[in-house]
Amino acid sequence: MRIAIVTESFLPTLNGVTTSVCRVLDCLREAGHDALVIAPAPAPATYRDFPVRTVRGVTLRQFRVGLPSYELEGVLARFSPDVVHAASPFGLGARGLAAARNLGIPSVAVYQTDMPSYLKQHGGPLGAPVERAAWRWIRHFHTLADLTLAPSTQTLQELSAHGVPRTALWRRGVDAESYSPERRNDPEVADLRSMLAPRGETIVGYVGRLAPEKECHRLAEVANLPGVSLCLVGDGPTRSALEQLLPRANFLGYRSGLPLAHAYAALDVFVHTGTKETFGQTLQEAMAAGLPVVAPAAGGPLDIVKPGVTGLLFDPEQPGSLRQAVGGLVADPAMRARMGASGRGKVETRSWKTLTAELLEFYGSVINPAWAPGIRVA
């Protein structure tokens, strides 16, 4: 199969969209498919020997954004794909969907970023009307796609409520080999734990971008819990403010690859704070590492966390709810071990290879609707 992936984000920018696209490309290469990537500049000329075509980009709030280009028709026509995959479309991806429609190429849009909420949060007094305008724009360009894939049932419901047609559920994969309880035996993890918890504290950690939409200020509720060492892994525009808010916390900065796996393995409890997540990939990674997880009872985490089994959900509208949930886990090592083992069991089969196989079925369903009769489209 020939797949053209038009992505709003790609290397060297590292975020959830880039990671998902790269993992899908890895699996497509292993399965013998052909692919083309269209992404904002700058970007590498190739990835896994797949060509990467770039369009002009600008940087907005530390995000590299591709500018919609009428060159896309020509690029797609020359590549002649069987399907166009728009990854987290909004600007460049929306233009890619329009180009696919103009050329008569089937298309799949993958909804991953809650852009309306992001724009509302950063829009000041104009936040609410900007959010409404964003949803009108999203509804418009998603009607151009033959199918829109969403990562959680909550997101599917939100898309339906805003009039987005032809949707289906496609979750995210996780690297259960890199993120594993076995990493706790690595000497680097022992060294990190000694640094983070010199007096044997319970290490409570967050992994992700340090930005307003991640709502990391909520961690103040647990920062002064007795016997707790708080750790934040990641970087972003709110780091300085968070360092002032959480003066006793350990800030490890941005990590990827093996150092990130070691950071997960060094934790005892994982906390996710954002209430506007369409999925919650770091929750899956923490569960793969054998950690009990705590997350808000909102958005994507509702699909991932089974309360009392793999972790706990807290009420983001109730002050003290996060502190109570984390405090309960800190006080009960046996419960932490039980939930960590359950979480590992839940996600260890969610490989990117399996999820990419599902994605290929979705591609087939738009190329030939009779090809995959088991696909459920809302």
Results as ranks from 00 to 15, higher is better:
K276P: 00
H142M: 03
Y363M: 00
H142T: 05
T202C: 09
V37S: 03
V58C: 09
V52Y: 03
A41D: 04
G274I: 06
V52F: 05
R2W: 14
G205L: 04
A249S: 07
Y118C: 03
R376I: 08
P81I: 12
K276S: 14
L149P: 07
E348T: 10
S69Q: 10
K346Y: 14
L359T: 09
A100E: 00
G311S: 05
Y254L: 11
S342K: 08
P212H: 08
E348I: 09
P212F: 15
P237M: 09
D82V: 08
T148C: 11
L196W: 01
I105G: 02
A331F: 04
L144Q: 08
P319N: 10
V174S: 01
V204I: 13
K120N: 11
N185D: 12
A286T: 13
A98G: 09
G16W: 11
S152M: 04
F90L: 13
F279Y: 15
L267G: 05
G200Y: 07
E158R: 14
G57D: 01
H262Y: 12
G300S: 03
H140F: 14
V228F: 08
E182W: 12
Y254Q: 10
L322G: 02
L225R: 04
R29S: 13
R48L: 15
S240C: 11
D82L: 09
Y363L: 01
F362W: 05
L219T: 03
V326I: 11
A168T: 10
A128V: 12
L156K: 04
G343L: 07
A265D: 04
A98S: 12
V293F: 09
A161L: 15
A298G: 03
F141R: 00
V228R: 02
G66N: 03
R171S: 07
N368H: 07
D235G: 09
L11R: 08
V207N: 05
G343Y: 08
W371N: 00
Q324F: 08
T18S: 07
V233L: 05
A197W: 01
R132G: 13
V347C: 01
D146P: 10
D235C: 07
S88Y: 11
V65M: 10
Q281H: 15
T13H: 11
Y111H: 13
F314M: 07
V83I: 09
E215I: 08
V21N: 02
G66W: 09
I203A: 02
P198R: 04
W135M: 07
E158T: 11
M339V: 07
V84S: 00
E277Q: 06
R48W: 12
C231V: 15
S256R: 14
L258W: 15
Q121H: 06
G74F: 06
A334V: 15
H122L: 15
G91Y: 08
G280Y: 11
Y264F: 13
C231W: 00
V83G: 01
A45N: 12
C22T: 15
P165H: 08
T46W: 12
P125D: 06
R248M: 10
C22P: 00
V58H: 00
V108E: 02
D82S: 09
L72I: 14
R29P: 04
E158F: 04
F50Q: 03
G274H: 02
R95G: 13
I375G: 11
T356L: 09
S160H: 15
A298F: 00
L245S: 08
P369A: 04
L329I: 07
A298Y: 01
G234C: 05
I3W: 07
R56P: 05
N102Q: 13
